[in-house]
Amino acid sequence: MKTQHIALLGGGLLVLVFVIATSLYNDQREVEMGEAASRPSSPLERDYAQSLGPADAKVVLVEFFDPACETCRVFYGHVKTLLAENPDKVRLVLRYAPFHHGADQMALMLEAARKQGKYWEALEVMYQTQPQWASHHRPQPEKVWAFLAAGGVNVDTLRRDMKNPDLMAIVNQDIADAKTLGVSKTPQFFVNGKPLMSFGYRQLKAMLDAEVAAQY
């Protein structure tokens, strides 16, 4: 056997093992995440969680997000498009997974804005101004306050509400649920309890469209 052939065979085998192991690992992970999300006492949805869309929608899209995450910012527009494409059929449930250091403050801020009935306004302001307050992966809450005030949020009330233990409990519960479900990246989507494993807008759209077609 020529040396070139031996090396090709050896290298090829190594790569093959790598590819097979990757595929097996990802399959296993998908099964585990799906099982955690579909248990009867699933922590995927909580009654307190902010949602958008009809309560009787047969398709529920759960998104674990981080207000300081750039990809979540980009996907917010995509998700709105998907909701508009499927009116009355899809309900969006937002859950927090503030993985960026300090981003739990932003989640608290959103919950405090919700008490004023300004959740979606605050979320949009946060995403729009994200490059200014979350640059270099270091979210700065004090910068967000000014933007929120311009967006019509009462910041004094907001800052007081951010110390409310009930709101902190919501954020902490979301963080705990994300951990239970094996959410390790944001945004992490679940369509009717099934995790989106191959990440991307097209994949999300395909999964959602398939579920809508199956349910309606």
């Binding site: 790598f18 990757t22 690992y25 390790s184 990246k185």
Partner: peptide, 8 residues
């Protein structure tokens, strides 16, 4: 690479 990229 498997530890970092696949198992994350």
């Amino acid at each position: 690479l498997f530890f970092s990229e696949v198992m994350e």
